[in-house]
Each structure stands twice: as structure tokens, then as C-alpha cells.
Amino acid sequence: MAFLSSRRGRSRLAPELDDQDLGRLLKNLLATTRASTVGMTDMCVAQISRLLERDPEDWDRRAHRMGVLAEFLAGWRLPRSWATREPRNANALVLYAWSEVALARSQGGLDDAAGVIDSCLRAAELTPQDPTPWVALLRAARLEHWEQPQMFGVWNEVLARDRWNREAYLTMLGYLTPEEAGSRIQVLEFVDALCARMPANAPCAATELTAQVLQYHSVLDRGGFEALVARNHWSRATAAQALDRVAHTWVQPGFLRHARARADLNILAYALMAADRRREARAAFEALGGTVTHWPWQAGGDPLAEFEQAQRRVPRDG
């Protein structure tokens, strides 16, 4: 399955990134089948539960694990079965809701939006300090095209519990793009307000650079002449400055410490190569050690192939 670690040389798709416990769990789950017996399902649930109960107040790590598991289990019966059997288990409720959102992205919408929203709200009542149910609700609300006042209301619930929640900022960023419910001006205002007060190594530090990559992709998607000159995007002041601010800090050992740091380094390596800043990209590739994320590499085709092609273009000398 491409979702798990696939190898071509040293590079690999690893949704768990550097979370070894999560990686082991994904391998164990992969060893089962979607039509597994009740006993096997119980074993999987027990393993998932144990992992999600670790580091109970590390909201950043918790969101990473919940999100990866939800993507992996999208379409499986397990999340719904667990939530049905344990209706007062917040982990079960959130995993079910998040996995339904992950599945809905490929199906065009939620089959049971009311049920998903209710699961998030019940989980929030059971664990009032945990931002994760609100993160899941924010993802569902984006998919359901909620109005901006409602979206910002949910977003504020997340931030009240976890000020620099990476998933919340990136979800709102996507929602505010002109392709969804916002505009280019709203994206700029959102990013500017964040950068004015955010610590440089906060979990949501990639929001600004992600906005630039999204805009770059929107140009590529237009095709024709605009796509041919899309690289000019990175010569504009806002894009160049976004790269300048992070190109030499993120690659320093220990600077980025959040759970999805390697996902952010993938964004950095991709953006530097798109901007033809190949020498600077070398440090990002070295820091990654071959760990590849689907996004943003998948915009050009197979993410592993795109990653490796880009890596080969990096100068070997200083």
C-alpha cells in the first residue's frame, strides 16, 4: 500500500514521519484485513487506544497521530464500529469523525454530516481541555462549506486550547483561499496576522510558506502560458521573503520540534527547488533523510519520483 513506507533507494513515503510508535502501529494495522474478525478488530482497537492515550496533553503530537490514523483508516469499518461500541470514548468519537472527513474528500461530501458533527461535539464535552475534537469539527465544517462566522467560531475554540495548533491554521488557510470561501486578500491578512505574533518555531510555522505553495499551485493549474512562467511566482517579494525567513533556520538541528516538522521540511525543500534555490535546498533534503510526504510533491505526479528527481538536481558541492 502506497500510504505506508514505500522505498526507492533511501526515500520513502512515511505518513508517520519520525513517530516510531505510530509507524509500528500502522504496520500492525496493515497486517490485518478490512474484513477482519471481531477478535482482530478488538486487538486493533486496543493498540490504537494505547497509542492515543500516551502523552495525553501533548496536543500537537495527538493531532498528528489522530490525523495519520484517520487517513489510514478512512473507508474501514473499524472507526465507526469503535465509536458505536464506546459512545463515551472521546478517542473513538474523534477518530470516527476525522476518518469520515478523510473519506469524504475523495467522495465529494460527508454521507452523515450531522452524525460526524455530533461525534465531535460529544467528544468535546467528554474532554473539555482537548482541542482535537474541535480540530476534527473544523475539518468537517470546511468540507461542509460553513459560513465564515461559524468557521472562525470553531477555530477560536481550538486556539483557546492550543494557541499554535498546526492543523487548525492550515485548515483555515485552505478555507480562506479564493478556491474555497475566501479571497487572496483574506489569505494575506490571515498570514500577516499570524506572522506578527507567532514564535518562529511554532507548530503552525509553515502556514505562510504553505500559502505561497498553494498560490503557486493555483498558477500551475491554470495551464497554458501562465503555467510555463509559474516559477516567476517565487521572484515576487512576498514569496521570496517567505522563503528567506525560514530557509536557514528550519534546517538547523532541533529548531523545529513539533510532530510534523518533517512535513514542513518537505514543503521547504519543494519551495526552494521550485524557486530554483537549489544550493539552499540541500540542507532541507539532508535534514529529511529521505522522508517524503505526498503533499506538495504530488502536484507534479508521483510524489516519490518528484522528490527523488528534485533531490538529484541539488548540487553536491558546497
Rank of each mutant, 00 (worst) to 15 (best):
L69R: 06
D18V: 13
N266R: 08
C195A: 15
W82G: 00
A102I: 05
W297Y: 10
L159H: 02
R80E: 14
L25P: 06
A227Y: 14
A305I: 12
E16T: 08
E167A: 11
G224F: 13
G75F: 05
S119I: 10
A31M: 04
H233L: 05
F72Q: 04
V154N: 01
L209F: 09
D18C: 10
G289C: 04
C204Q: 10
L51C: 03
V158P: 07
D118N: 13
I48W: 00
L69I: 04
D55S: 11
S81D: 00
A2M: 11
V116T: 04
M1H: 14
V187W: 01
Q252A: 12
A74G: 06
A114M: 09
S218C: 06
Y270M: 02
A181E: 11
V45S: 02
G39I: 04
W297Q: 01
Q309E: 07
R10C: 04
C204V: 12
G300P: 00
V187S: 03
D111P: 01
M40Y: 06
V187C: 06
N165K: 00
G174Q: 03
A46C: 02
W59P: 07
D18Y: 08
A230C: 09
T293A: 11
A230H: 01
A35I: 13
F190A: 01
K27C: 06
F190Y: 14
L103K: 12
G174Y: 01
L69N: 05
P296I: 05
A196W: 08
Q20G: 12
L78S: 00
N165W: 06
I185E: 15
E53Y: 07
R139W: 07
Q150R: 14
L13P: 00
P128W: 12
D162A: 14
D192T: 07
W164E: 08
P133K: 04
D19H: 08
V213Y: 03
Y96M: 12
H145C: 13
A136L: 11
L209C: 03
S5P: 03
R77L: 11
A281P: 11
P87D: 06
M172R: 04
A205P: 09
M66N: 07
W82E: 02
T293V: 05
C204L: 12
T249W: 08
L265N: 05
N266T: 12
V135W: 00
A242R: 05
N89D: 15
N266S: 14
I267F: 12
L220H: 05
A63F: 02
G223K: 11
Q252S: 13
R54H: 09
G67P: 02
F225Q: 10
P128I: 02
V314I: 15
S99Q: 10
R236K: 11
G75V: 06
A196S: 13
L121H: 07
A287D: 00
A263N: 11
A181D: 06
A274S: 06
R184D: 15
D19K: 04
G67C: 02
L214I: 10
E57S: 10
W76G: 01
G109D: 00
A261S: 15
D302S: 04
G318S: 15
V68T: 15
N28Y: 07
C120P: 03
P87N: 08
Y175M: 10
V94G: 05
Q148H: 13
S235E: 11
W134I: 04
R262H: 15
R105K: 10
W155L: 10
F190L: 01
R85L: 07
L265D: 07
P315R: 08
A140K: 00
D112A: 10
R12E: 03
W146K: 05
L126K: 01
F285K: 02
